[in-house]
Design a protein around this nucleic acid. Structure first.
Length: 414
DNA sequence: TCTGGGGTCCTAGGACCC
DNA sequence: TCTGGGGTCCTAGGACCC
């Protein structure tokens, strides 16, 4: 089987929901429909996650802080995002897509790749399949999406972005050279701001130029990335659609938070590190993984950000061990000013191996952790918490109760 | 009270080992 | 009397993505 020659060109579909979070909110609340809205986080220092198309007309974009957004669009309505809703909606969309292909890669909460090579026999030409999918999502979920179809993932994603919102673009082999010829390199998936600037210095601004540029020179300048750049310039991408269940296992698990205000008090910093360590440890325990490399991230008010890491002799998912490592990393840093953001992450992950604890103390500790996790799972974070996190009123201090631990990207480790 | 949070992959120097 | 080379681990940082 492994020697089968690929007889047929692949057909890859990419689907991207239009202004996903904002559209979900407008669907849930009719008073938001047709209005300029921006979905933001719950914390005081937050940014626009998604702007509705009405808001985009004023120049409001993802990543903006809310004051900037409000300046551009004085009537902008801010809506605090609700991840649960987005995750549920995303799952419903995936369930629709399952009717059209067994090979679906959920690339993010609002984007999927579908391998539809050979599906004409069942559904007719790819553009017909795409129309049916769009209709079903609109009818059953009440949202619009844009779809791109092309011979590979790179070009399919490009096609999706050529027509938005509610778009449908099919790129055939013959269309590709002329499109790439004029396409600014920065619009390609994988070429960001920095690479665009570097390429411009070299006189390369369009994909056509990039594709013709000598690979050896790209290689000298960018290393391995240079080779990929050359392929991108020519629209070549052999990467497969990776279906659910076949993904690579997670490489790291981490949490970070921008503090409500800049902090220089080390006691306050320690309490935040405890909270972050608990979030990381709990998630690792839930997925039955352990890690032996712990990374502390610190950001100063001027946005200068740096990391310190250390490797432990043995992998762990114990909150206290993660905390101790974070604190020892903090001790090695001479903070030159107050701290804006803190992060803790666990890498070098292995699957938790079943092993009898050697000592009574360990056994006791494990039971304690399991009990706390069970209660927290049922009643939300920090129903039970560590002593030092509690303030004098006995309530979980420091962190806002609106804290949402649920990331949009789930970690699955086998 | 300007600028979130979760990831992946790559590079590069030094330590250490054989 | 100028002195190898490969492999792996560790650490810090940068670029990119949604």
């Amino acid at each position: 089987m492994g020697e089968t020659v690929q007889l047929r060109e692949r057909v890859i579909m990419h689907l991207d929901m239009d202004a996903f979070f904002a559209s979900v909110e407008q669907r849930c609340n009719p008073r938001l429909r047709g209005r300029a809205i921006a979905v933001i986080g719950s914390a005081g220092r937050t940014v626009v996650t998604t702007a509705s198309y009405e808001a985009r007309r004023y120049g409001v974009k993802a990543g903006m802080n809310r004051y900037e957004a409000a300046m551009l669009c004085p009537r902008l309505i801010f809506v605090i995002g609700n991840n649960r809703k987005y995750i549920d909606t995303s799952i419903r969309i995936l369930n629709i897509l399952k009717d059209f292909s067994p090979t679906i890669e959920p690339y993010s909460i609002d984007e999927e790749f579908l391998e539809i090579t050979g599906s004409e026999l069942l559904f007719g030409p790819p553009q017909d399949t795409a129309r049916v999918i769009k209709e079903r999502i609109e009818r059953e979920i009440g949202l619009t999406c844009s779809i791109g179809i092309a011979p590979n993932k790179l070009l399919a994603k490009l096609a999706t972005h050529m027509e938005k919102p509610d778009g449908l673009v099919v790129l055939g082999r013959d269309d590709i050279p002329s499109i790439l010829e004029k396409l600014p390199v920065g619009e390609v998936w994988g070429i960001g701001r920095r690479l665009t600037a570097h390429l411009k210095e070299m006189g390369v601004e369009r994909c056509g130029q990039l594709g013709r540029y000598p690979v050896s020179r790209l290689r000298r300048r960018f290393g391995i990335v240079g080779e990929r750049l050359s392929l991108m310039g020519r629209g070549i991408d052999e990467s497969p659609v990776v279906p659910v269940g076949k993904e690579a296992t997670a490489k790291s698990v981490g949490h970070s938070t921008t503090l409500p205000r800049d902090v220089s008090d080390r006691g306050v910093i320690r309490r935040h590190l405890l909270h972050l360590s608990e979030m990381v440890g709990r998630r690792a325990r839930r997925y039955r993984i352990m890690g032996k490399r712990i990374t502390l991230t610190v950001r100063y008010p001027d946005f200068y950000t740096f990391t310190r890491q250390k490797s432990l002799p043995l992998p762990t998912n114990d909150t206290d061990a993660i905390l101790r490592a974070s604190l020892s990393l903090l001790d090695k840093v001479r903070l030159r000013e107050s701290v804006r953001l803190l992060g803790v992450s666990l890498a070098g992950l292995v699957t938790e191996y079943p092993q009898l604890p050697l000592f009574e103390e360990e056994l006791r500790r494990e039971r304690l952790l399991e009990t706390m996790d069970a209660v927290n799972d049922r009643f939300g974070d920090f129903t039970l918490s560590w002593g030092t996190l509690l303030d004098r009123d006995g309530k979980a201090g420091v962190i806002s109760p609106a804290w949402r631990p649920e990331g949009v990207k789930k970690v699955e480790v086998r």
